[in-house]
């Protein structure tokens, strides 16, 4: 008996395929280990691909020993500084984006007034105006937070106002026939349906936000994950850079998963797109 041959588009891994997902990670780790070993065997002073043990040691120094000069645990101080900036930036961007986005999406007058402006703003590469921000806000915390806000907010506004516009005409009419005022429509119909979209928009903004944060920190800061990476670059300290990059990735991943979880938990009625 010949076995049935499925099309490739219909062949699926058994279970949830999580083992398959691990495979490329394992492959990268193994490749790195082999490469590092080979380079170190030839030149024990090689800094480009430090051994895992070296990285662990450098990392432990930063994480568990007080810095001689500042008396801080540098790694945790860096993380704290970066997360505060990130939280402030994303928090403000979310608030502004939600209010302005919903307002533009709901009110034709506001849309006529502001939609083009927002579209134009979203075309400005945020990093290009970083010098302006440093000039205007000084080199302190404000400029970094503002960079994240400026970089992310136009996208959120545009995305949300578009989502508001996509709510079916029938719903707008229905709400009005139930007697709702504009304010009540916003509160009871638009906002609750737009919040899951806000989370989606926020998740998409995480990448750019980290980019802006690390850039700003690289240019002017006294602490922060980006600051540290760019500082130790001068000494070719891959043993610090790599763990930091790993840590940033982990943080970004945690943010993303957290938001995804929040969406599911808080909005059980909202289906996620693309379930394939």
């Amino acid at each position: 008996m010949t076995s049935y041959r499925f099309r490739w588009i219909n062949r699926r891994p058994a279970g949830r395929g999580s083992l398959l997902a691990l495979l490329p990670f394992v492959a990268i780790v193994v490749a790195y280990a082999l490469g590092s070993h080979a380079r170190l065997a030839r030149n024990p002073e090689d800094k480009l691909m430090p051994a895992a043990a070296t990285m662990a040691q450098s990392f432990a120094t930063l994480a568990f020993e007080r810095d001689a000069r500042s008396g801080d645990y540098l790694f945790w101080e860096d993380s704290r500084a970066s997360l505060v900036r990130m939280g402030a930036g994303l928090g403000i961007a979310t608030g502004v984006g939600l209010v302005v986005g919903v307002a533009i999406g709901m009110l034709p007058y506001l849309r006529a007034l502001l939609a083009s402006l927002v579209a134009a703003f979203s075309m400005i590469p945020a990093l290009a105006i970083l010098p302006i921000l440093f000039i205007v806000f000084g080199v302190g915390e404000v400029a970094k937070v503002v960079l994240i806000v400026v970089g992310v907010v136009p996208f959120i506004i545009r995305d949300l106002s578009q989502r508001v516009g996509e709510l079916p005409e029938e719903q707008w009419i229905k709400a009005q026939t139930l007697g709702a005022s504009s304010w009540q429509v916003a509160l009871r119909m638009v906002l609750p349906q737009i919040l899951p979209r806000l989370i989606d928009a926020l998740r998409l903004s995480l990448g750019p936000a980290w980019l802006f944060l690390i850039s700003a920190e690289a240019i002017s800061a006294t602490s922060g994950l980006g600051y540290r990476i760019f500082l130790v670059r001068r000494y070719l300290s891959m043993d610090v850079i790599l763990p930091y990059v790993l840590w940033i990735t982990l943080l970004a991943f945690a943010f993303d998963s957290g938001l995804k979880w929040l969406r599911r938990a808080a909005f059980p009625w909202a289906r996620e797109e693309a379930r394939r």
Binding site: P168, E170, Q171, I173, K174, Q176, T177, L178, G179, M189, P192, Q193, F267, W269, A270
Partner: peptide
């Protein structure tokens, strides 16, 4: 307004 009610063929209820 509330004096005229409507039932559409689709999207007639609020999914949330």
């Amino acid at each position: 307004g509330p004096d005229r009610g409507v039932v559409f063929q689709r999207y007639s209820v609020f999914p949330h």
